[in-house]
Simulated assay, not measured.
Amino acid sequence: MAYLTVKDGVKQFTGFRALNGVSISVERGEFFTLLGPSGCGKTTLLRAIAGFNDLTTGSILLDGQDLRAIPPHKRDIGMVFQDYAVFPHLSVFDNVAFGLKPRKVPADQVKTRVAEALKAVHLEALAERLPAAMSGGQQQRIGLARAMVINPRLLLMDEPLSNLDAKLRIELREEIRDIQKRVDIATIYVTHDQEEALAISDRICVMSAGHIEQIGTPQDIYGNPQTLFVANFVGTLNTLKDTEGRAKLLADLGLHTKAAHWTVRPERLSLAKAGEPIPSRSVAVPGTVSKFTYLGREAHVLVETAAGAVVVQIANPAYGAVRNPGDEVSVLFEHSALMAFDADSKRLPLES
Score class of each variant (00 low, 15 high):
residue 3 Y to N: 11
residue 6 V to R: 07
residue 7 K to P: 03
residue 9 G to N: 06
residue 10 V to A: 01
residue 10 V to S: 03
residue 11 K to F: 09
residue 12 Q to M: 08
residue 14 T to C: 08
residue 17 R to F: 02
residue 24 I to F: 02
residue 25 S to N: 10
residue 28 R to G: 08
residue 34 L to G: 10
residue 38 S to Y: 10
residue 42 K to Y: 11
residue 45 L to V: 11
residue 50 A to R: 08
residue 54 D to P: 03
residue 55 L to W: 08
residue 56 T to W: 09
residue 58 G to C: 12
residue 60 I to V: 11
residue 61 L to M: 15
residue 64 G to Y: 06
residue 66 D to Q: 08
residue 67 L to T: 09
residue 69 A to M: 07
residue 75 R to W: 11
residue 77 I to R: 00
residue 78 G to T: 04
residue 88 P to M: 13
residue 88 P to A: 15
residue 90 L to V: 02
residue 91 S to M: 06
residue 92 V to A: 03
residue 95 N to K: 02
residue 98 F to K: 10
residue 101 K to G: 01
residue 107 A to L: 05
residue 112 T to G: 00
residue 115 A to G: 12
residue 117 A to D: 01
residue 122 H to L: 15
residue 125 A to F: 06
residue 125 A to M: 12
residue 126 L to S: 09
residue 129 R to P: 04
residue 129 R to H: 11
residue 132 A to M: 08
residue 134 M to F: 04
residue 134 M to R: 04
residue 136 G to P: 13
residue 136 G to K: 07
residue 140 Q to V: 00
residue 143 G to W: 00
residue 143 G to M: 00
residue 153 R to Y: 02
residue 154 L to G: 00
residue 169 R to W: 05
residue 169 R to I: 10
residue 173 R to F: 07
residue 173 R to A: 06
residue 176 I to G: 11
residue 179 I to G: 06
residue 182 R to E: 09
residue 184 D to K: 01
residue 184 D to T: 02
residue 186 A to P: 02
residue 187 T to R: 03
residue 187 T to Q: 03
residue 187 T to Y: 00
residue 188 I to R: 00
residue 190 V to Y: 04
residue 191 T to D: 06
residue 191 T to Y: 04
residue 193 D to F: 14
residue 195 E to D: 12
residue 196 E to F: 08
residue 197 A to L: 08
residue 198 L to V: 11
residue 198 L to M: 13
residue 199 A to P: 01
residue 200 I to H: 07
residue 204 I to S: 05
residue 204 I to H: 04
residue 205 C to F: 13
residue 207 M to E: 11
residue 208 S to V: 14
residue 209 A to G: 13
residue 214 Q to K: 07
residue 215 I to W: 05
residue 217 T to C: 11
residue 218 P to Y: 04
residue 220 D to P: 09
residue 223 G to R: 08
residue 224 N to I: 03
residue 225 P to E: 01
residue 232 N to P: 01
residue 236 T to P: 01
residue 238 N to W: 12
residue 239 T to C: 07
residue 241 K to T: 10
residue 243 T to R: 12
residue 247 A to L: 15
residue 247 A to D: 15
residue 248 K to L: 15
residue 249 L to I: 15
residue 251 A to G: 15
residue 252 D to Q: 15
residue 270 S to E: 10
residue 271 L to G: 14
residue 276 E to N: 05
residue 277 P to M: 05
residue 285 V to F: 10
residue 286 P to D: 12
residue 288 T to V: 09
residue 288 T to Q: 10
residue 288 T to G: 03
residue 289 V to C: 01
residue 290 S to P: 05
residue 290 S to K: 12
residue 292 F to R: 06
residue 294 Y to K: 03
residue 296 G to E: 14
residue 296 G to F: 12
residue 298 E to C: 01
residue 303 V to N: 04
residue 310 V to W: 02
residue 314 I to R: 05
residue 323 R to W: 09
residue 328 E to K: 07
residue 333 F to M: 08
residue 333 F to V: 09
residue 334 E to D: 15
residue 336 S to P: 05
residue 342 D to E: 12
residue 350 L to M: 15
residue 350 L to T: 12
residue 352 S to T: 14
